[in-house]
Design a protein around this nucleic acid. Structure first.
Lengths: 125, 125
DNA sequence: TGGTTATTTAACCAGGAGGTTATTAGCGAT
DNA sequence: ATCGCTAATAACCTCCTGGTTAAATAACCA
């Protein structure tokens, strides 16, 4: 899985307009003006967003006379989910609790003098 | 689920350095200099990346003397996965195939004169 | 007190992102 | 041929991002 593709995929997903476009395309393919209609934004702006989505491989376009129907492509999203899923096990809450518990035990071990390890109660959200 | 939080979460994930930091933190918490060590980049640059991750809620920090141990926070990632999962059903390959098939049928229907709908073979990746 | 280590902040810079308006290109229809 | 519709491109603006180096903070140590 290419790192650059993940870059462009996550970057594409980072804008609400583009997520809304993807959500709209999940229902059916649509033309540029159809996609632009619900937004208070010029048509060129939407074209730019579409180019970002296209470069990320999230959208492909056909040709129907003047229209350029846009269609959603799933693969990059699957890759993004796969990357996230790779770490989901480590991110499990239980792991974090265990980590905090170990820190706490180690801190208690050093009560003879200096307590050198992190204090879990010092964590700031 | 807040849209702004999704913005900052996906934006934070869009940089390879930050993904590497998260991957490192998935193993255990670490200090800023520990995190900076493997990168050919100044330490202030890493601090900036950490601030991005912290503002996205992906990382929290404690205090251990001079050190600021960083710890991974899972919730925003769960939110991101949840957003992606919401659309996974629509993104299923079967749906795309069905959509393409419907287009093709509709195109065939109009062979009496003009074929007004999108041509699946005209799609460009 | 002064020194050392860890981290943040400040100031700066180049380049990219996201928007605008105006213009151009592509294609059908008259 | 030309008009109208759809979409892309150009040129421009502002703000944010990602990096730098240098200086300021914070906390420990002797």
């Amino acid at each position: 899985m290419d790192a650059e593709l993940l870059d462009t995929t996550f970057a594409a997903l980072a804008h609400p307009t583009r997520r809304a476009i993807l959500a709209r395309l999940a229902l059916s393919e649509a033309t540029v003006t159809e996609l632009a209609e619900p937004f208070e934004m010029s048509q060129p702006a939407i074209s730019k967003h579409l180019r970002v989505l296209e470069r990320a491989g999230l959208v492909s376009r056909g040709r129907d006379a003047q229209r350029r129907p846009c269609r959603l492509e799933a693969q990059p999203l699957r890759d993004a989910v796969a990357w996230l899923a790779d770490y989901r096990d480590y991110w499990a809450e239980s792991y974090q609790r265990l980590d905090a518990l170990l820190d706490e035990l180690q801190a208690v071990d050093h009560t003879d003098g200096e307590s050198r390890r992190a204090r879990p109660d010092g964590m700031v959200r």
